[in-house]
Design a protein around this nucleic acid. Structure first.
Lengths: 229, 229
DNA sequence: CGCGGCTTTGATGTTCATCAAGTAAAGTGG
DNA sequence: CCACTTTACTTGATGAACATCAAAGCCGCG
């Protein structure tokens, strides 16, 4: 959790985030920003923590998760670089109603939330950018959750495999960054059934599996299962 | 779908929506606003329609819904007065990715979206109000969807009954504004099972049912089922 | 009156969670 | 480095939860 000033010259966020700022404003913002690094497996914040920062994932991969009232763990979403992480809660509550944990070593850009809010008030274009980004992020999570609710288990597994391949790694061969249990927590099914359906897909020659390494062999069939399952 | 200028003096939205405006700005906004009335059952807009307006539900009850890729209908959420209806899509897309239909006779306050966006740029406090409202609405929908995914059918029915009683009608006796099929579409289960579990709850003396009129007799038990089911 | 949509119940089979038991892999302390 | 513990993975058997199919009654509406 070392802290250091960010070198904004090489910062990918600039294009997106600083769209609406002039050079002077960028410098100002840059000065107030810190970078924080988290090791794989470490907790960024927990359900119930007070919201003081506005966080933006620069590198790595994290999971947003919570505990249901029945005690069952549930993963809300994964976030990859340039996704908001401060999404839910941040503008609607004073404390987080979900936790964030690093799945891979991750770096955050970290702003003071009050300063961000102040800047929203002062800079209309920045406000619109935030609204658009926030809106897109929410839409995506809502749509994904609705889709998963309509799918059978096979469809859900197809969905998550294509998600990793096409949205996260841009490659039909990849290393699963999460356990079978975590996949179950994300798409609302038991660990055993995650494994069972992986095996089915392997037997049907749709996948090659060795440990956490997945190779999707029959992309069309997987897409078909995803759509109809 | 009659149009008329809104009488802002008696408008409930003023407190919430115009929080950040001075008297002059309110008058300006008021001038540009129209009210639209929709009869029960009529369509406000459909999936794919271009987004030109910013809509706010003043009176009535509507459903936000969509069609899954498999062709199955799905209700995303109900919206009651003072809820945003222009929520999903509006700031993130150029066309709606869901439809809105009136469940009860409904009246909307209707603004031009571009003018709203312009006002967001010009008025920082208004921007923050919009962000907070948008954020709260999204959070609610996301959380509800996550909760439903973890519940068994009995828990889902308990959930939706308590939702109508406590969130919509503020009364443990109420008329269901929707069909059994629509309830199924909202909480992802078949019409038959909605009916079956209604019957179970009736046999267990938790409910009295006659047609669309529901009376919740055992509130504690229903809450318990909602939590653990 | 007849048609279509909503409601209800029962019978049936599929999908899925749970339980159990075993193997493999990964971390821990001596 | 090895014994030990824990956690992850895997498969099978079983029963519960759920969807589907079928049939019938009800009601509103043209």
């Amino acid at each position: 959790m070392e802290k250091s000033l960010c070198n904004c010259d090489n910062c990918d966020l600039k294009v997106l985030f600083y769209n609406s700022m002039n050079a002077e404003e960028i410098l100002l913002m840059c000065d107030k920003k810190t970078e924080k690094h988290y090791e794989k497996g470490s907790t960024i914040f927990q359900e119930g923590d007070e919201i003081k920062d506005f966080l933006y994932l620069k590198t790595g991969l994290v999971k947003l998760h919570r505990n249901g009232p029945n005690g069952k763990a549930q993963i809300i979403s994964f976030a990859k670089p340039l996704d908001f992480v401060s999404l839910l809660s941040v503008f609607s509550d004073s404390s987080y109603n979900y936790s964030v944990t690093a799945i891979e070593n991750s770096t955050f850009c970290c702003f003071n939330l009050d300063e961000i809010k102040q800047f929203i008030r002062e800079n209309g274009n920045f406000a619109m950018s935030i609204i658009e980004k926030l809106s897109k992020s929410s839409d995506k999570i809502i749509l994904e959750s609705l889709e998963i609710r309509q799918k059978h288990l096979r469809g859900r597994i197809a969905y998550i495999l294509l998600y990793f391949a096409e949205k996260i790694y841009n490659n039909y061969t990849f290393d699963l960054p999460v356990s079978r249990r975590e996949i179950g927590e994300l798409i609302s099914m038991t660990t055993e059934n995650v494994i069972r359906i992986f095996s089915e897909f392997r037997k049907d020659k749709i996948l090659k599996i060795s440990g956490h390494t997945i190779e999707i062999n029959d992309i069309n069939k997987l897409h078909q299962i995803e759509r109809l399952g």
